[in-house]
Amino acid sequence: MIPQTFDYTAPATLDQALALIAQGAKPLAGGMSLIPMMKLRLAAPEHLVDIGRLKELNYIREDAGALHLGAGCTHYEVETSPLLRGKCPLLSETAAHIGDVQVRNMGTIGGSIAHADPSADYPAALQALEAKIVLRGAQSQRTVAASAFFLDTFATALEPGEIVSEIIVPVEEAGAGASYQKMAQPASGFAIVGVAARLRRSGGKIAMARIGVTGLAGRSFRATAAEKALENTAGSAAEIQAAAALVAQGVEANSDLHASAEYRKHLAAVYAGRALFAALARTA
């Protein structure tokens, strides 16, 4: 629990931070993953740049039908934001599932997704929301879809020198309902499996289905086969169960001390069903 020596800078502006990061400094936001790794000496960055204090990265605002979250928003802020709760409740609901009160007070949405833990909660919701992720470097800015951002276990589309600066999610349309359901690993609180479901009903049919899955595999993903199976159906219990059963199909599932691959695949179907039923109930 004793880290190696490191330099620490808390710059006043994002540009200053990005300039240091471009030179190889490691960004520190809430520190919920990085600091424990440093204390165990599994990580030994020489220079930390604290971006968790930058006001520039801390905002939640609505703009042209979309919601923009600064990467520095804490999970608590995401969980309790009246704007998000009203217009994108799935993200708030997901944030409420993360870790514990202390983690939600410190951890940030940008830090979490940049870390890309395969069992983190947000990626399921961001996949289901077809979120866009804004990546900034000292001289660059680009936007990638969530589906293209999460590449593998701890691997993202971030290039050296880049940070996650903003997350963009849609304002939910009328007739939409969403839910995030997970089985938590009892020690860490991470998702053994977590499923975020979004549905929109129109004219008695499911007009849109989006399903994001975390914990099951090396990366979060959208269960497109299940989505397709559900769209244009009436959303009967049998149709939902049939779609949920497709979520884990063909997936190479994770296996660890806490759950075998086989069990995870089973849970994915169970929790997909639960998330879909809950989402459907909220479409009313």
Binding site: P186, A187, S188, L257, H258
Partner: peptide
């Protein structure tokens, strides 16, 4: 009854070596 177990692998490595993997109930 429900959560805790110290797990060593065959080589004697404690793989529930941190609170991330050893489930003390909260």
């Amino acid at each position: 009854a429900l959560y805790e177990q110290a797990v060593y692998d065959e080589a004697g490595q404690l793989i529930t070596g941190e609170l991330m993997d050893y489930a003390v109930p909260k």
